[in-house]
Structures are given as structure tokens and as C-alpha cells.
Simulated assay, not measured.
Amino acid sequence: MPTVVASDPRATLRGGLPDRYLTPDDIADMFGVPLETVYQWRRKRTGPPGFRIGKHLRYDPADVRAYVMQRKSAGQSAA
């Protein structure tokens, strides 16, 4: 399956997530937020769920997609 390369990291969320675990830097790039915001989301448990592999924080692309879909449906039901 060919890899989609986009100049806008947020296009990754529209065009399909990579087939690897994502780093906090990846999440910050995708959502267009500072890296510190990603860590605040984790502390407050408001962002996509992450997990640790040793000392490294990673995100499952399926969990990130589910988080985005949940946020989109919550926004539509509030409108």
C-alpha cells in the first residue's frame, strides 16, 4: 500500500494515519498545537489516549482516529 505524503501534517488525519505508533511530536504536528499542549492533554486526560513503551509515550493510530471521530460527532450533536 503506497504511503501518502502530505506537506500539511493535518492532512494525515484526513488521508489516513501512518502504519506505526505515533509520537507526541506527531500528534502536535497533526493537530497543529504546541508539544506542551499534547502533554497537558495527557495530564488532564482530554486528548487522544496514549501509552508508554518504557519511558516513551506513543499513540495508536486507531485510538487517534477514534478520538477525532468522537470529537467530530460531539461537535455535531452540540450544534
Rank of each mutant, 00 (worst) to 15 (best):
T3L: 12
V4I: 14
V5W: 09
A6T: 13
S7W: 11
D8N: 15
D8L: 11
D8A: 09
P9F: 07
P9H: 05
R10V: 01
A11S: 12
A11Q: 06
A11T: 04
A11D: 14
R14L: 15
R14K: 12
R14N: 04
G15M: 05
G15N: 06
G15W: 03
G16S: 10
G16T: 11
L17N: 13
P18S: 11
R20V: 12
R20M: 11
R20E: 05
R20I: 08
R20L: 12
Y21A: 10
L22A: 12
D25W: 02
D26I: 08
I27A: 06
I27D: 10
I27L: 05
A28D: 14
D29M: 12
D29I: 01
D29G: 08
D29F: 05
D29N: 13
F31M: 03
F31I: 01
G32R: 06
V33M: 05
T37L: 06
V38R: 02
Q40M: 12
Q40D: 11
Q40Y: 01
R42E: 13
R45N: 14
R45H: 09
R45M: 07
R45A: 10
T46C: 10
T46I: 02
T46P: 02
G47V: 03
P48G: 13
P48L: 10
P48R: 09
F51H: 13
F51C: 02
F51K: 06
F51T: 02
R52Y: 01
R52E: 00
R52F: 02
I53Q: 03
G54E: 02
G54S: 02
K55H: 01
L57E: 06
L57T: 11
L57R: 04
Y59R: 04
Y59D: 10
Y59E: 08
D60W: 08
P61H: 12
A62M: 06
A62G: 10
A62K: 09
D63Y: 08
D63W: 04
V64E: 08
R65D: 14
Y67G: 07
V68K: 06
V68E: 09
M69L: 13
Q70K: 15
R71P: 03
K72W: 00
S73N: 04
S73I: 07
S73V: 13
S73Q: 14
A74L: 11
A74R: 11
G75E: 10
G75W: 08
Q76Y: 03
S77G: 01
A78W: 02
A79V: 01
A79H: 00
A79K: 02
A79F: 00
